[in-house]
Nucleic acid binder design. Structure first.
Lengths: 123, 123
DNA sequence: CGGTATCCAGCCCGATACTG
DNA sequence: CAGTATCGGGCTGGATACCG
């Protein structure tokens, strides 16, 4: 669907609000990383901490809580002697991989050729 | 294309970097608004200032410069007695409306049903 | 193990005032 | 008209230490 066809049937304001909402859900230094990680399977807190890299525990908790509030991630406590928590994508979380793919494909077609996102983030 | 098919042929790191790059280009309070505005046609600085709403001149200039550095927007000075500058989308700027549409469509399908976009969702 | 509590630096963004 | 200069508040994210 094109932008033009879109603007004909949806108010520009709704488009702005909707798009902004998605961008905000994905904004933050680690949101995309965590979403992609959980898309490869459920992880425990400490696994996310280790696999994401240099993220601090505070920031990890903050980010996971935000993703949870947005309905993209579920937090599940596993009963036991020691604390054990698992995080995984919700159906909504899975569905957002579609726009995520659209973004990646766009970047691959328009940015990677120019080597334009190599310096954006050193992970 | 699915996430799974994607991860098979592209490194996870490239996916993260590419997606992050797009999110960063769109992050910021006014980026999406300005992109959608310019998608409806070229505007002068003062027109953008008025049509976007409560944005300050400083922030508008900052945002336009950032979009320009990212190659999404062109700035053109029109010779004349008084200063006059026009902003419009580049081909790259036009092309990014595709992921933008993907985000809006996702929001329309998954978020608008739950009410306002500002609200959080239940899992 | 899976978090909180605290402190703190940096940046994003706005308000206001001034300029070629 | 299209900015820049300056000031400052608020939020984000990291460092470190502590806890059930």
């Amino acid at each position: 669907m094109t932008l033009r066809a879109m603007t004909d049937e949806a108010g520009d304001i709704e488009m702005i609000l909707g798009t902004r909402a998605v961008v905000e859900m994905l904004s933050g230094k680690w949101n995309v990383d965590i979403l992609y990680l959980l898309a490869t399977g459920t992880r425990r807190y400490s696994e996310v901490l280790y696999e994401v890299g240099e993220i601090s525990k505070k920031t990890l908790t903050q980010t996971l809580r935000a993703l949870e509030r947005d309905g993209l991630v579920v937090r599940r406590e596993i009963p036991g002697v020691v604390a054990r928590v698992e995080y995984s994508l919700t159906p909504l979380g899975w569905s957002i991989t579609e726009p995520l793919m659209a973004m990646y494909e766009w970047a691959a077609r328009h940015l990677s050729a120019a080597g334009r996102y190599g310096e954006r983030l050193a992970a």
